[in-house]
Design a protein around this nucleic acid. Structure first.
Lengths: 194, 194, 194, 194
DNA sequence: AATGAATGAGTATTCATTCAT
DNA sequence: TATGAATGAATACTCATTCAT
């Protein structure tokens, strides 16, 4: 019934735990939180069903670890993406690239992110993950702009990506850049940089 | 669980269909799409289980109608909220109020909206609902600002609300107003710093 | 939900009863007894759902009447098919034609017949229908052959048709004729004709 | 209904799969394909409901396996029944005994067979089962008679058994033997009367 | 330590039948 | 007289979790 018979017995398998968590991220990406089952994860990770409840206390636990892994990776990509950024023009370009999928995060990654946001809406235990991710994003931006601008740009990224993945028509990159530029640009009241 | 036995037989019930759709919105708000079951909806609408599949072809169908109703109402509130707006200052104030829940849409309403966005990500059939909603929001804003600004403000609303409902600490309304003001304010200088 | 809204009100509809029974035969042919529901019949007869339980005491009743109608028609076709038969050679030809679908009864008709046989196996109330049908078939054959031969030929028809509709490869008409000929042909012990 | 509560937990139960398939044959025999439900099968096999969908992908799958088992057993009985047959007279006697239930296959077995035939009429996937069964029956008969005779005798068996189980009056064994004898007896004269 | 068979509470859905209109 | 909304018991099936091996 399962592919268990086909799979060779895997006696020594030290990073099975990790592989299961990674497989869970994949399953969430493909089927959403609602469609994420023990069976699908076990198949994706190529481990026996019992292995999941042996290594994790339950599906909630596994899901939380998958979200934590994903948030950690997304934040890492974000930081790496801004590593070479110097000027405000660079910031505008970097954020635009981020939104248009040129920063290592594709639609699939963003789908998992939105799954996390929605799950966190209902399960406060997941807020520690979203908060720490957001804090890291803000820290990166605050190297270039003031906290208010940072908060605005961060929200803009979330909103624009959401609109981009939901839109049936392609979004103009030029327009995205213009929007970001307005949000990033220093204001009369004082310089944006700290 | 208990209401079924207590409920008197209700042979004539002309707006039962509508009541079921409304109950579905409530259930999605409270339990999320994943937790939305025929049983919960039937209990919320105070109708027997069989009534749901009599009036609707299935749960997908019912969910879609609930989302359509919710989007319609949200768009209506949005339009009503901007009815008395005249100046750009009014726009800034209106958008800020919208984000901070002073425009008829509370956290619960936004939760349903995000459920819709995520569901639309996986089910393209729901895109017609999200697209029409977004079109209406843009139309309202474009009475005051250019299309690019409109797209930016719209994305900002979505992102800021998301951050607000996910944040464990309160968000400064002043800061929100400032972010909106920058996005709305007319710009002569062109993008970013020269 | 139903097509009821599309259908014009049919105030005077004297042969609705008959039309429902005929629609039931069609539904059995297409979906089998197991797949025959009030809803399908109502749709096929283009009558409102409530009309079925108004005119018939229940699904069993309706099914029985449909089977009775079908058996009556099959027997009629059988008799008509043998009307011009004179010699034993004619009998062989007539029976062969019957089996190969050249006597007004196609695979669909035989499917309904087998549905009836199987239903009669479990519901003795239907035996009156099958028995009367078989009696009429025998009577026809006994105009040409003795009762034993008649019983054999009758069984042969049932068995050969069954094999024909179940076989994935075409059945040789020549072979069928040869088999029938052997069963019909007079034996040494005495003439087959009465 | 009651057995579930009484049944002790049966953690180790190596041939449960087989027992379920056998129980399914019984249920089909007693209630027909249309009346064969997970619940009835589970009760007959004395296993919990969830056990069925654990071992089988669905009811269709289980039904198909039950039919395959039954066909295999029927073919086996058939072959065993003809093991000692030498002369054509023996053949006539063996076939007669078969029809009158003296060959290990009773009315119940034949009911399942007809259920299979009817199911195969609608579901071509079951044709492999009926075809392989018929091929085996023919092979046995072809040890004694030519293929055309074999096909005729096979059809005769099916038709006569059907008539026998449907008839409310007993069928003369003498008459059956006579019919079989005519079909089996070698023929030099060629078809019908000249 | 690791597994996969086993379980039962839960899910969506179908449908014959009833009955107020 | 005729209807179609309403009902609830029954259906197939899913799945997180348990636990003997």
């Amino acid at each position: 019934m399962q592919s268990a018979a086909d799979r060779p017995v895997r006696r020594h398998d030290p990073d099975r735990r990790t592989r299961i968590v990674e497989a869970t991220v994949d399953v969430i990406a493909e089927h959403g939180v609602a469609g994420t089952t023990h069976r699908l994860i076990a198949a994706a990770a190529d481990v026996p069903l019992g292995s999941l409840t042996y290594h994790f206390t339950g599906l909630d636990n596994l899901r939380a670890q998958a979200f934590a892994l994903h948030a950690e990776r997304m934040a890492g990509k974000y930081e790496a993406h801004f590593a070479g950024v110097r000027s405000l023009d660079d910031v505008v370009e970097a954020v635009t690239a981020l939104i248009h999928g040129d920063a290592g995060a594709d639609d699939r990654d963003w789908a998992v992110a939105y799954e996390l946001f929605l799950a966190a809406l209902r399960d406060p235990a997941l807020r520690t993950i979203t908060e720490s991710w957001m804090r890291r994003s803000r820290s990166v931006l605050e190297r270039f702009v003031d906290p208010t601008t940072s908060r605005g740009v961060d929200a803009l990224i979330e909103g624009l990506v959401m609109h981009k993945v939901l839109s049936t028509r392609p979004i103009s990159r030029e327009q995205t850049r213009e929007i970001i530029a307005r949000a990033v640009r220093p204001t009369e009241e004082g310089p944006a940089s700290p």
